[in-house]
Amino acid sequence: MKEQGTFRVKKGMAQMQKGGVIMDVTTAEQAQIAEKSGAVAVMALERVPADIRAAGGVARMADPAMILKIMDTVTIPVMAKVRIGHITEAQIQEELGVDYIDESEVLTPADEQYHINKHLFKVPFVCGARDLGEALRRISEGAAMIRTKGEPGTGNVVEAVRHMRKVMDQVRQVIGKADDELVVLAKDMGVSLDLLQEVKKEGRLPVVNFAAGGIASPADAALMMQLGADGVFVGSGIFKAKNPQKVAEAIVKATMHYDDPKLLTEVSKDLGEAMPGLEMSTLTDADRMQDRGA
């Protein structure tokens, strides 16, 4: 008997993406460039986060026709974003057959209290998190992959670093706790004791944990890998750069050889102008996407 959509199958899909780079694309042509550059998957969306930021207004899921076109163009997995808590956008993505759904703070949240019950879907979900509590709450809701939130569309890696360090630090704390202390920690974090025990036993998050939100250069990608990321999402950093294919290929190589400064130096040369970046202090509270859906 074949069992589809089990948690092992959903989580396993993310395990196959480890060590790889997932790239934001808005057209079939960009998807082809991403595939040719060695992306392990593409994230199909209407606008990259930097443009969503610039445009303002309500950001929704992308046009299904556009997503289908990208699915027809590349053989690598295609992911797509839905608004936090937007159950029907997720149902539409599942119907389309996208390979992974990102319930993402980059889009305008549809529900300020509840996330989607992701256990009800056969398609796996990835969700953003700033700390271990957020990550484990998303996993309880059925997320089969976690990524840092960072601060999308800024080309500034500082928030992704903060979130990755925080998660890693909290995992180390959990490892060091006695079992009775975990009970109190579970209560304080608002997470299930079972999941905390699993973190303690495995010595890591129970699912794959990628870096996302502000990664714009090969050095950024390698930094996130050195801090313990299982792989990298790159949003605006590639197609907002002057030379997307060259930057994309360099980020792919840097993610594989993240601990080899000689190679990192080589691939960082002559990449042309990078995307323009944003300093965090210039963002108002309303500009901060990471505060959505905690």
């Binding site: 008997m1 074949k2 069992e3 589809q4 959509g5 089990t6 092992r8 199958v9 396993g12 899909m13 053989t75 997995p77 599942e94 057959g97 996208v98 390979d99 992974y100 056969k122 398609v123 796996p124």
Partner: peptide
């Protein structure tokens, strides 16, 4: 044949 069983939705264990 690549992706012979379909997309991720059709992935399975047995």
């Amino acid at each position: 044949k690549r992706n012979a069983f379909g997309r991720q939705r059709e992935s399975f264990e047995t």
